[in-house]
Structures are given as C-alpha cells and as structure tokens.
Write a protein that binds this DNA or RNA. Structure first.
Lengths: 211, 211
DNA sequence: CACGATCGTGACGGGGCGTCACCATCGCTC
DNA sequence: GAGCGATGGTGACGCCCCGTCACGATCGTG
C-alpha cells in the first residue's frame, strides 16, 4: 500500500454506523451458513446450532435475527424469490403476447435454478429433499406477478377468459417439477426443458374451459 | 349376551395369534394417531410423544414400529398411495385411449383427495402445510403406473413419442397443485377442477416436442 | 404347565432448544 | 474525550424431546 497519496477517508462517511453494518453482516452470515448446512446435512437433520456454529457467533445471537430454523429457511426462499423477481419482471416488460412471455419466463427460471444449484454446489444426495418454499411475501409476490402478467398478455392476445388461479398454479407447478427433473439429468438442458414446458402449456391454454 | 346357543369358538380359529393382532392394531393405532396429530398441530410442531400419547401406549413402543416421525409420515403417504393405486389401475384397465384414461385418473384422484380431506377433517389452518410425499415405494409405484399407462394409451392413439418422464412429472404436478387449490375453494368442485386439468394437458400433449 | 420368545414399558442419559442476566461496545451529548 | 444510556453479543441454564435398554408381563409351544 502506497504511503504517498494516502488520504484517510474524509469523515463525511455515508456508510451506516458500525452497529448497522455488523447487523446486516451477521444476518447474511447466518443465511450463508444455513445454505451450506442445509445442503450438507439436509434440512431435517440440520440444527440451529449447526448453523450458528459455522458463523463463529454465539448461540443466543441466532435468536436475535431469526426465531427458528424454519424462519431461516423461509428467509432463504424469500431471498431466492427476491433475486428472481427482477428477471421475471424483465421478461414481463419485454413481452406483449403470451408465448413470448411464457417462453422467456420459464427459460429465465430454469437458468436461474441451474445457476443457483451450481453456485451453492448443492449436490443433494438423491432421496433427500428440501421442503418446498412456503408462502413467504416474496414467493407470493412472484406468484402474483406471474398471474398479473398472464392476465395482461392473455388480454392482449384476445384470449377468452379462463380460471387464472388454476392456470397460474398449474404453470408454476409444471415449471417447478420439470425444473427439478431437469437438474437430475446430465448435461443440464435448460433449453430442452423450457421447450417441453412451454409447448405443453401453449398447446393447452386454447383448450381450457372458459369462464 | 344369550347363554343358550353359546358356542365357545371352535378352535380351528383361522385368525392370526394375539401377538400378531396386537401388532397390526398398534401399528394402525400409531398411524391413526399420527394423522390426527399432524392435522391438529402441523407436521413440524408434532412430536413422537404427541403421537404415542394419543394411543395410550408407552413411548418406547413407538420405536418398535417406526424409527422416527419422518418414517410415520412416509408410512402415511405410503398408505394413501396404496389405497389410491387400485382406483388408478381400474381407470387404466377400462381405458384404451389417452383422453379417457387421463380424465378418469384425474377425476379419481380429485375425488380421492376430497374424500380423504373430509374423512380426516383435515381443516388445516391456511399457511401451515404438510411436507410433500417423499419417494416411498408405493408413491414411486403410482408414478410408474401412470407412466406405463401413458405409454400404453399414447401408443394406442398412435401419438408420436415424447419425453415420458417429463410428461408424467408435469401431469402429476398439475394434478397435485390443482387438487390443492381445489380443496381451498367452496364448494369443492372436483368435476370443474378435473375438466381444467384434463383440457390443459390434452391440448398440450399434441404440441409437445417429439423425441 | 413350563419355558423361551416376543414385545410393552417407563426411567434414563444425551443433546438441542430458547431464554436471560451480564457485559462489551456503540453512538450520542456535553 | 469523558460520561452514559441503548444496543446487541455471549454462553450457561433449565426444559423438553429424543432414542435406548433392562426389566417384566404375556403369548405361543411342546
């Protein structure tokens, strides 16, 4: 580190105080540790103490941030949904018709989960499985965003009105399940999986009962 | 009880011995208690002792039958799948074409879950949710049976070959999800839900990418 | 009737859970 | 920079659930 031209930071320091910083750092550390532990031991076997041990913090500290293992898991799901939402919104904004949106959204989702899996090295031993994402705020928001986008693009296509709740649920279920199966195959083929899911839905929608 | 014409049971008694009978009775009692407890407290909150307490048996006895809460849950899922399988098989045997089988199977499933829900009075507080059925033998068998039936009726329809694993997964995912949503609506409309699911799939299958 | 096999039983050690009193550190004020 | 609440990290503690195991009651058998 050069000792010329070294300016100690002007103390107009915009950063939040140290209290605030360690708080977010701890929260994040717990989240990261939880990801690892869930991945290694599986959700059921994991304990709060396994998680907190990995952070070097004291056991009591955990409870300053989360009420339970379940809440950490929900926070993890929320985090995933929060990071996925902009991608979904981008697809929604660039598409006007149903097909374009559907293909974009599903491909975006498949790429997202494929990257997540790689990033965390979540080579879950087969048979073991994490619980499904619960209805956290962000997860619900994703659901709602899909439904609203569906409503918009279907109206644009002059499609007859259908049961939007059923349709949204079915599409998300397909994406989840095909996405899961896709990750079990080598090589992971997001394009192929997306093609399958899109064609299934696209073919089915015109045949749906009308309200 | 009349004291004339009372014959002590002829001891050609075909019934299995008492040991065997109490064994199956205990196993069943634990299963029933678990259903209740999971329904009332939710899966996460339920403890092995909550379950065993309701049977009047001692805590140690539980472990003569199941290794853990998880295993009881799996046994419950297995039980459900075992009772559903004959219904599924009946649909498979009476149908030769895809549409007939699909409609019959999905309607059978929706009626099945609707009856189960009523039978157990599983008015689950919304938000709380049971974990998804794991890959128990019977559950896997149901999956396989659906796939084989699909293969048979699709061949009969001279349909082009498609990715059967993806298709089966997608259909089961749709049935599960729509079935769930259906149960949240009043009145529960199995016909309407089945109509939706069937039309979605039926319209989609011809559009699927071919292998 | 007697004996061995088979469970039901509940007490017990182990361990994870959530809490709480304690104290270090932070941010603020004079 | 000294003083002083407020904030939040700490880990020991009591609680409860876990899974086990030695014991004894009961069943099946000859």
């Amino acid at each position: 580190m050069s000792n010329i031209a070294y300016f100690p930071k002007p103390h107009i320091d915009q950063r939040p105080g140290k209290r605030e910083r360690t708080k977010t750092a701890n929260r994040q550390a717990i989240l990261d540790a939880a990801r690892e532990v869930f991945g290694e031991l599986g959700y059921d076997a994991a304990t709060v103490r396994d998680i907190i041990r990995r952070t070097g913090l004291a056991s009591g500290t955990f409870y300053n941030y989360y009420k339970s293992k379940e809440e950490v898991f929900d926070a993890l799901a929320d985090d995933g949904a929060r990071r996925f939402r902009p991608l979904l919104r981008a697809e929604s904004e660039k598409a006007t018709d149903f097909e374009t949106f559907l293909r974009g959204a599903i491909l975006a989702y498949f790429n997202f989960v494929a990257e997540e899996q790689e990033a965390w090295r979540l080579d879950r031993p087969p048979g073991e499985q994490l619980p499904h994402a619960r209805s956290t705020p962000e997860v619900v928001a994703v659901f709602d965003e899909v439904r609203e986008a569906f409503a918009r693009v279907l109206a644009h296509d002059n499609a007859p009105p259908v049961d939007l709740d059923y349709l949204t649920s079915a599409c998300i279920a397909i994406a989840r399940e095909i996405g899961d199966k896709m990750l079990d195959r080598r090589p992971v083929d997001t394009q192929g999986a997306a093609d399958f899911a899109v064609k299934l839905i696209l073919g089915g929608v015109p045949a749906l009962p009308r309200l």
